[in-house]
Amino acid sequence: MKKFCFRLLLFALLCAGIDRLFGLGFCYLQDRAHGGYFLRDNYISRTMRADLLVMGSSRAVHHYLPSILGDSLSMECYNAGQDGCGVVYGYGKLQTVFGRYYPKVLLWELTPAFDVYPSDNASYLTNLRPYYDCPGVDSVFDWVNPAERWKMLSYAYRYNSRVLNLLNDFVSHVPLTSDGYLPNPGRMNYEPEVREEPESCEVDPLKLRCLLRLMEQTRGKMRLVVAASPRYLPEGFAGRVQNPGIEYVKGLCRARGILFLDYYNDSRFVGKKQYFKDSMHLNDEGAEVFSRIVASDLHRAL
């Protein structure tokens, strides 16, 4: 028994040592990322000082051209959206920004599937884990699952599923983007099925907590604008389909005097396949048209 316990202890120490070595190596690679997502993420969390910041999911990162928004509003603009991530990730990522400075305007692209409705919130933490040591980020991990605090003791876990990106971004010298926007080339060449919107709004308590905290945190420090960009609707569907998640957040914004820009069923995009990559995402052409509309509306409102 004693022998077994001794060997078990030795094995555990070996694991801890290897894990620490992985951690040192990964931190080195992360700090010296020359391209890809890690360079973009490092920039957002460590260097960026843009006055107008766009946040949200893939519908943020592919829909808002910072060059158009920035020119129109005479502000430096950066698009910090992240594919497949919503308010849980966004709230955590913003803590790395707010720890350094407050932008003048925060434009939040609302995607109910990621920002309102229940889903597996732990999956949004993957891109945040390498930045766990940034002040304020740990709170969102605690909210998702208190056990995350213990899991984050492992450096291998922090970089779970990101190892190849890390190596690629270290070797590659091609930045993904200069202003955060990621182009979405291509055109939808099929007629998608119009999916039913949920009838009632089931709100994820954690997502609501992040949204409310964000609204609270930005009050008095910057202008928060929430927007819902267009999705594809065939002719004849304009204004016929309401999304309860969007209506719910619209209500929250109204109660707090936050500007809400609703383009979800905008007639200017109805039946225009040339503006879409798929039913939920604009392509480059659509993003340019949409960014001009947003820029003009923001110019009037701010």
Partner: peptide
């Protein structure tokens, strides 16, 4: 044996899907 176990353990930690259902 230990090398095999360590390899498997760190493969799971590094490339496994750890928050799946």
């Amino acid at each position: 044996r230990w090398a095999g176990c360590l390899f498997l353990l760190f493969t799971v930690l590094l490339i496994g899907v750890l928050d799946a259902g």
